[in-house]
Design a binder for these strands. Sequence first.
DNA 1: GCGAGCAGCGTACCT
DNA 2: ACAGGTACGCTGCTCGCG
Length: 798
Amino acid sequence: MKALFIDVSYKTKGSKPVLTLIFKRKRFFRIHDSSFEPYFYLHSEDVYEAKKAIEQLIVEEKGMVVKAKRVEKVNKILAGKEKEMLRIVCNHPQEVPILREEIKKFGTTYEHNIPFTRRYIIDTGLAPLNTIEFEREGKELKKIIKIHDTPTPKFNTLVFDIETYNPQGAPRPAKDPVIMISYAGETSGVFTTKKIDRPFVHFCSSEKEMIEKFCELIKKKDIEIIMGYNSSQFDLPYLKERASVLKTKLALGRDDSSFTLHRRGLITKAKIKGRIHIDLFHIIRFLATIGALKTFQYTLTEVYSEITGKKKKIVPKLEIWKYWDENLKCGELADYSLNDSVAEKELADQLLPMEFEISKLSKVPLFEICGSSTGTIVEQLLMNRAHWENMIVPNQPKEEEINARVASPAVGAFVKMPEPGIYDKLVVFDFRSLYPSIIISHNIDPFTLNCSCCEKDAFVSPVGHRFCRKKRGLIPTVLEELLQKRSEIKKRMKSLKPGTDEYLQLDARQQALKITANSFYGYLLYPRSRWYSKEAGESTTAWGRHYIQETMKKAEEAGFKVLYGDTDSLMLLLGDKKKKDALEFVAKINSELPEKMELELEGYYTRGVFVSKKGGEKGEEKGAKKKYAMISEDGRIKIRGFELVRRDWAGVAKQVQKQVLEAILKEGSKEKALKIVTDKIDELRAGKTPLEELVIYTQLKKSPGKYEINSPELAAAKKAMNAGMPIEVGSLISFIISRKGSSISDKAMPAELAKDYDAGYYIEHQVIPAVLKILKELGVKKEDLLLGGKQSSLGDWH
DNA sequence: GCGAGCAGCGTACCT
DNA sequence: ACAGGTACGCTGCTCGCG
């Protein structure tokens, strides 16, 4: 039969492990496999002696007698070399750690901590969300015939969101009821305990009935994927506690169980039996950490508007209870509640296809892979592939080793120091997938390092490490395939109409491939990596520095002036040269680069601003790296690093800086820029600036007690805590510098409690520093800003 | 005892 | 809990001066 593979779990029957595979055809169903055996490997100096000893070995643990089921001699590739090793087959997964503890005295054990269900997927080649063709006998799996990569079908999905009564600010689950449960899927609606005149409202006579009706809906609709926003931390635990207070069950699972919490590193996931629960917030956090998404705060409201470009209905969190109490406003609250679920559904529709593809690629079931780190994705992909290649998976490093790795970081990228100034006619080039292409071109891998076969002919990195030229490494092989697949997909997409099902799925797949390919270099230097190699990692960056610097040299030789460059990009001054010359230059560079590497022309810019670093007053001014603004030919402004892109600067300073940059880039008008600044300073002095423009946002990365020194955000956080506001690790502190106090920290007040502002601070520490660094390039001095707008005419800066 | 100068902490950014 | 490179504000210490 053919069915879509979803997930696998195992339990013990008798004393044997039995795997339960979840498949989907029309509905989810289960098939068992009781034939799969757990095992691990041993590398020993004396294979024969070790085998004999292990076969005799009997371990008694907590009254259990544990021994190996069988011991097999196998040939495997360990750290790039063929070795005879032992495969120790066990009776039960739980016996693996017990036997391993005894057996490690014979040598080094491998693959002893791969979870049994992962082991099963790796060894069978089963890929989640692919169609599996198999034979069965009743409920037992007999044989896997083929695995088909078919388009992902539609799932029965439901998004939900709850509203809680919160007269005290934060809702207390022991006392404060859930007042609304909204959902969106095929249809959408709101369960609530008030008779609200809206067509989508389902009236429930009590909170208890509301929870029960919601669970019934999930059961009746046979929901396969259930989602929420921060549902694992808020909605689900809250519902569970309410259910227990109300003496009812939160029957979300197929067996009427509620959910279980699973900690994976820093995130906690809620698992619902027989369904796939996905917390969209985890996906958002993942996208934020890889830099694919950047918002000020990661609230549903902000994320929704960033991703869809649309605004969501808003009811201030602290006023929800008031809306509820005021009968006339209940309708609005219901609209809001429904809108939350509908918005989350839209997010899910956009985000899930990529998660599906990451799951297929890494072969990790959807529930497990959703929101996991790039390290996990790369690692799982490599583990699967290592198995096919008959390679032993390297062990995870011990704490000690991790610390040693952290203590000795590798040298990274090259960044050129720019000459501060305002420039016209720029051209920007980028290396396409710089690090992946370097890894592929030079066969960089932990186990191609210092091979014995290419003594004279190896790839030698600029830092002196040698990589084999004959045998391909695992990492370059996998990486090359990923890039190859991605370019094929991109080619196919060109022949399709955007928006079709096939196009969207291909787009999701190319995103997954890109994210994964871009994570390999990081994984080489990730301290907890199984494939860590400082030599490989630092060779990658060394070649990166080499190519960018060589390209800069060649650009100078070709008569361009190199303004700036960072890692894989370079910015040239076109000067008297034409676009044709830029194209010729890129073609020449590409003819000299290794085949898999490529320099691309990113675009032409009509004007760009570089500023000097702060503090470099005396002696020569040094240009600030990672800080510039440019305007492209078609009028698009690109701003990097300036205060205005940072959340820890006040809105006033950011707005003024933005206007100044725009005035310079678009119009070249110094007068206009000056006027903007002096007007704002006047407004600040007069005390007329609205407090919202003065809020500074800073995240507390540690818990408030763990700081060595005081800081404005910490001081503000403590004041907020005293006022009863919840502050914890990761809280985003919003504060305003008020008039009361001596140090800046003393003056920092939580935005919610601030009544006034310190004009002097905002003028001297926010607005002036933000704009002066730019206006300095036009000859403006600090006094010019403080004295007002009587200025000389625009000088020529060219 | 006091202010200037500076190191180091801490955060957020860039590629 | 993917990497390293960078800017920069603020605190709190050291140091020179008196």
